[in-house]
Design a protein around this nucleic acid. Structure first.
Lengths: 340, 340
DNA sequence: AGTGGAAATGCAAACGATTGCATTCAATAT
DNA sequence: ATATTGAATGCAATCGTTTGCATTTCCACT
């Protein structure tokens, strides 16, 4: 039996308007006698009044909900991101409606449609990232989008991501500084924002050090574990195998680790390994994995802030923010020992 | 410029009622001429009509949103659960509003309040699980609760969890069958539903095998990594250290692994290790970890189903479902070799 | 021709809030 | 005494739907 403003009005003898003003309007535009405020407030708590955001949303055209779409909630990366979004959104009185697109463009489109029907005030989206036509179709000035993690180069919305190039460069330089020259990269899905950045950073670091990157040292085509496993096996079978490997994602690194163990190679003694992305369990692997940590929480937080800013000031210029990742050195890279 | 039913009505010359019936009512209670249906539908798509669920929610007193509260979204366990909830909910046209209580009773209460204000149709909650008074306070027949994973023994709502006792028994029996007698348990937070069940299962298995469990073999007080680390260190310092360890959660197991490595003990040669909970990376640890896998997806799915059933039929008897976990044998347990 | 009934559609109230524009009343100023 | 003012409150429209109850039209049947 939820109670409404008019229930309180009836009980107190005041009008619905007055009750509404006492309970919800904190701008001091209306003068209400202290005494009546008290009466109304006490009756409200007595009846257990819970404001109806649905009704308010209809009237004000603001639901105080934001929509979130991520490509895979079961991925700790996105889960952590959603957690930080939730925390930041709550601070401003927003709730989040979460959708999982399951790395599927069609479900992504469905999700957008649903969120639009729910009249969310804005949308944070970590897009699947291959196609984008369906995104354009829903762009409207009414409901702002903020892109997270997975960007499109020429998109004109607010966006937050991580400097993939920088992270990859740092990781690669770390290998180079440890004396490695024959360095391979296990890449993710070609054409995606993340992969392109990471491969580019890798190449830059190699070029800066004056090392040629051999074509056969660039292997893989997917961010999954199996790809890391197969890619590593492939590398190890070469007549001139690499002494160090840079994995473009943590699942890839797990696959690499499996392959190396299966070949009875010890990390870092026989092969050095660095990975992009630093999942929580990385310190507990053996050896603890050297990894590029992404500022995930910060990304979620910034995303919410950008969205809130746009809701306040819809005409402000869109911003694109690149956060800095950080190389965390643990024990999976050792100086190269040159065979005597 | 979102378009409404009345925009379509104006364009087509029909009344709002008729437009509404064509676009949303698929019960054949009203007869509408085929021809007018077509006209209305085509104008609707031409104008890009998006139904306003807020308005509809107000009228029908149904938002088609369900609220989810989990204790920690960054925990892969809950992330996976939310993912499966999202999938199952979408099938029935429901969206999910997600809150993270951060293992904090006060935030949990706040979350419930927010979700109530949002007028979600029902609530799925993986509770923090120590206190419960705040939960009772919000119990109402209007908004049904379904408890997930973390239950209270005497609660009268629908609930789904996992058979912790059975899982712990299976794990312990596996150790016993491998010849172990001196078996320790690293427990989680005492007093929580999960911990109690797991400890009980452990004790049952030991009792059934006629092995006495020594008090000093039951250590720990928290589900975190540090607790696993410290607990293991403690066990290893004993004059009569255990030959096998059962960890009540995966973070505990990670800590145990760290401690064992630090002591230069090799799993499973020197110490056997089983854990409750089977995170995705368990197969990639060295050694691959033998673990009790929980049917997480199924739990989310069942939770949604229970909630939907109750929404359809509010007076049906509450059900409490216990799902079966499954021991996955990998390589962290070996037969005990008795020193000659 | 009159009646009954079905088919097709419209009217208007309701859901619970917000808010511009009255209205009432008392106090102060002229 | 009257006009002016401001404080305190109420009226009623509005947001976009849904739906019970008309209403209109038309056809079939006696």
């Amino acid at each position: 039996m939820t109670c409404t403003l008019s229930d309180i009005a009836r009980q107190t003898g005041f009008s619905v308007s007055t009750v509404s003003r006492v309970l919800h309007d904190n701008s001091n535009r209306y003068k209400i006698r202290e005494e009546t405020k008290e009466v109304i407030r006490s009756v409200a708590t007595a009846l257990g009044y819970t404001p109806n955001k649905i009704a308010r949303g209809l009237r004000l055209n603001r639901t105080h909900q934001m929509g979130i779409i991520v490509a895979d909630l079961a991925n700790p990366f996105f889960a952590t991101m959603v957690k930080s979004i939730s925390k930041e959104a709550r601070k401003s009185g927003y709730s989040i409606v979460v959708c999982d697109s399951d790395e599927n463009t069609h479900l992504e489109e469905e999700s957008i449609k649903t969120l639009m029907e729910n009249r969310v005030d804005g949308l944070l989206i970590a897009a699947v990232g291959v196609e984008r036509e369906h995104l354009e179709r829903f762009r409207s000035d009414d409901v702002p989008f903020v892109f997270l993690d997975r960007l499109y180069d020429d998109i004109s919305d607010d966006a937050v991501s991580v400097d993939n190039r920088k992270g990859a460069r740092d990781a690669t330089e770390h290998l180079i500084q440890n004396g490695h020259r024959r360095i391979a990269i296990l890449q993710g899905l070609p054409g995606t924002y993340a992969n392109t950045g990471r491969v580019t950073g890798f190449r830059q670091a190699m070029a800066d050090a004056g090392i040629e990157v051999r074509d056969q040292y660039v292997v893989g085509d997917d961010f999954g574990t199996l790809n890391g496993f197969l890619g590593t096996k492939h590398l190890l079978r070469m007549e001139d195998p690499p002494t160090a490997i840079f994995a473009a994602g943590y699942l890839i690194a797990l696959g690499a680790l499996d392959a190396l163990r299966e070949e009875h190679l010890v990390v870092p003694r026989d092969v050095a390994l660095v990975t992009f992305d630093d999942p929580g369990f990385a310190p507990h692997l053996s050896p603890p994995l050297t990894a590029v940590e992404q500022p995930i929480e910060q990304m979620g937080e910034m995303g919410v802030k950008l969205l809130l800013r746009r809701l306040r000031d819809p005409s402000s210029a869109p911003r694109r923010i690149l956060l800095e990742p950080r190389l965390i050195v643990r024990e999976s890279v050792a100086p190269l020992v040159v065979p005597a």
